[in-house]
Amino acid sequence: MKLFISKTLFVGIIAFAFLVAFKLILPENKNYNSAFVNKLDILISHTQERKIVLIGGSSVGHGISAEQIQNATHLTTINLGHHAGFGLVDFRDLVLSTINKDDIIVFAPEWEFYANPIYFDTATLEDLYNNSHYLELTKNPNYKSFKSLILKKTGIINSLIPNHSPCRYDCYNNNGDIISTCGAKPLSITDYSVCFDYFNYELFSNTFPFINRPNTLIVFPPTQKRVYSRCRKQFDFIETQLFKTKLLILDSASANVYDESCFFDAEYHLSCENRILRTNKIIPKLIELMKISN
C-alpha cells in the first residue's frame, strides 16, 4: 500500500512539476484566434463609455475600419469582427452586457448568419476555449491568470498551422481592425457558395434582438461579384424580407458587391484600400444616427 501510494505520488509530482515548467517556460502564443481575447478585453474596458461597436465575422474585422469611424465621429469604436466560425450567439450576451442605451451597434453578419443565426464552426473554437465555455471563462475573475496557460496550449496547436496566415495576433490596431493585410500582396481568393435557401426573419430577430434597437445599423456583407450573381435570388429574398421591417439598414446587398480583385484572400476579406471606401459609406449614416440619439 505504502509503495503504491509513494510511487503514484512520485509520478504525480513529476508530472505536476513539468506542467508548472511548461507554464513558466513556454511563450504565450499570439495568433488570429487568440486575438479575440484582446478584443473582448478592449470592449470590457470601455463598458462605461459611450461607444460604437462593430459586430460580425471576419468581414467586419477586414472590411470596416473602427479607427476611421472613431476619427470621424470622435466616439470610441471597437471592431469585434472575428472569424465567423466562432459564431455570434455565444458572445452576444457578453457584448450586450457592455452596451449602453446610447451606444451604437453596427451589425454586419455574413450570409451564413442569415441562413442560420446560430451558425458556428466548432473546429475553429477549439483553438480558442472550446465553444462557449470561453465565455464562462471571461466571466470568471480568475480567468486572466489562467488565460496564459491556454494561450500556450493554442500555441502548440497553432505551431501545426501554416505561418502564412494573414492575420496574426499583432496585426490588430487598438480598435480591433485587422491591419496586417495592409500593404501586403493579396493571396489567392477562394470561391465559395452562400446560396442558402433558408431565411427566417423571426428566428434571425429573436437570435439577435439588438437589431430592433433604434441605434443599431445593419450592413450587408461584402460579396464577391461571381458569388452575388450565383446567389442573387437568395440574397434578394433576404433583402426583401429585411426591407419589410423597420430595421435601420445602410444600403443594399448589391451596394456591397465588389470585384474579386478587391479582396485580400478569403471569401469576405476586403483589402485595406477597399475597407476605407466601404467605411466612408458607413460614416455619414453613423453621424446621422448620433445626432438623432443625442
Partner: peptide, 25 residues
C-alpha cells in the same frame, strides 16, 4: 514505464486544466 506515465499524465493534465474554469466535455 515512469516516463510513459508522466507523458500520459501531462497530456491529460494539460487538457483537463485547460477547461478548469469551464465544463469538461
Amino acid at each position: 514505464r515512469i516516463a510513459i506515465y508522466i507523458i500520459l499524465s501531462l497530456f491529460i493534465a494539460f487538457q483537463i486544466l485547460t477547461y478548469f474554469y469551464s465544463k469538461p466535455s
